[in-house]
Every structure is written in structure tokens, then in C-alpha cells.
Write a protein that binds this DNA or RNA. Sequence first.
DNA 1: TCGTTATTTCGCTAAATTACGAAATAAGCT
DNA 2: AGCTTATTTCGTAATTTAGCGAAATAACGA
Lengths: 89, 89
Amino acid sequence: MADVYQALSSSVRRDILALLKKQDLSAGDIAEQLDVGRSTLSGHLNVLKSADLVATQRQGTTIMYSLKTSVVEDVLNQLYSLFSKDNKE
Amino acid sequence: MADVYQALSSSVRRDILALLKKQDLSAGDIAEQLDVGRSTLSGHLNVLKSADLVATQRQGTTIMYSLKTSVVEDVLNQLYSLFSKDNKE
DNA sequence: TCGTTATTTCGCTAAATTACGAAATAAGCT
DNA sequence: AGCTTATTTCGTAATTTAGCGAAATAACGA
């Protein structure tokens, strides 16, 4: 889980994740809903993919993006243990 | 909670938070334990303070840093609702 | 007030991030 | 093969971030 925090640090990328939460979408669909150029969006999707936050699946000519939740569970746990007052370790 | 994600995206800053979880520390104490220059550390502490992740309290000539947990609760909730499959909104 | 200690601010540099449009690639259809 | 649509890669520019040492500021004690 190299750089999940970095991936989550962009509001555009968090918006992408919010869209993908509702349904799987192609890059084009996402680009239509977010005010950002295609190539820029592609870069953001790459960051999310590297962080293992999204998965891709080719369907003919389009590529469908979907949300991956496993890594975020780790982040939640890490944040929890980083800040929970009780257990001091 | 302007940019908590940005603040959390640096491993140096996460290390600072981990140290502060165990006990309140001065900037000097932190600098001794982390391999980073004083001025650089000061910058990181500023980022954490802006993100409301740490609090400061002057004690004579030194400044004590302590962990603030309130904002992180919000982040945890946000992340949870961003990724939880069930509730689609 | 002077000196000492603790911390921050100030340039400055290097590296990373974000954005764009144009060109390249991939897949499907006729 | 040639055309169309979807997406990515490339080259470039602007902005942000991270790091450093030197100088500035703050608070204390002699």
C-alpha cells in the first residue's frame, strides 16, 4: 500500500472514487462528470490504480473502472491505531 | 478540515504523529528522533498544525506539541462513507 | 542588558505534482 | 485494410513540496 495517502490527497481523485462508489464507469463517463481533460483524468486514474484503489476491466473498446476497497481497510486501521489514545503502541 | 489528506501524505509527518501519540514532545525532541533538519521539521509541524492534527502549548522557552484527534475522526468517517459498499450515498 | 537555548522565518534549490493539447495506441466495425 | 471511438502516452509549463543553512525571533536566567 505504497502511497494511498498521496492518492487520496487530491480532491479530483476523491471525486472519482465517489463516482465509482455508485457504479462502475469508463474513463469517458468520468471525464464527462468531472471538469478535467481526458489526459489529465487518465493520469489521475493511473495514480489510483497504482495505489490499488481502483481496478480496471476491458470491455471491448472501453475500459471500466471500479472501486477497490481492500487497501482502504488497511488505511482505516492504520489511522485508527495512529490516533487512538488508549493502546499506546 | 482543509487538507488533512495532504498533511497525512508525508511519511515524515506520520512519523511525527506516531511519536506524539506516545507523549507530548518539543520540536527539539522530535528532531532528535527523526533524521531531519530543524527548519525542515518546523515546516512539517506547521503543516500538521494547519491541518489541525497537532496542538501547541508554550512552556517557557520550549513549545510542546501534542496530538489532536478530532479531525481524524472526521477523516475516518469520510473514508468509511466513501468506500462502504452498502449505503450508496 | 547580555548570553544562551529553542524554534521559526527566509531565501534558495531540487524534485514532484498537476494540467493541457497533440500524437500514438487499441479494439471493433464495415 | 481503412475508419471510428476510447484511452493513454508524450512533451511542456506552472505550481507545490521538501530540504537545507543562515539569520531572525522569543523566553529565560545571570
